[in-house]
Amino acid sequence: MIKVNNEDLDFTDGMTVEDVLRIKKYSHPMITVIVNGKVIPVDSYSTHKIKDGDVINVIHFMSGGC
């Protein structure tokens, strides 16, 4: 099990940041991904492996008409 924005998510072997974003449907372009307190650069979303028990924060920024 991992934590994504304070909610539980099932962990699967080989899971990457990109997978987490896809499962959570986090498609907003203005996000910052922080895994266990460390910011993950955008270009490593597809390669950065998640470990079981990781705490992930995907911070969304406001945008647009809002």
Binding site: S27, P29, S63, G64
Partner: peptide, 21 residues
């Protein structure tokens, strides 16, 4: 170009974002 692409599509970029969320 990496964030909201305002220059390209304006606020219309939010349609897909809001639908996804």
């Amino acid at each position: 170009k990496l964030q909201n692409r305002m220059r390209e599509v304006g606020t219309a970029n939010l349609v897909e974002v809001m639908n996804d969320y």
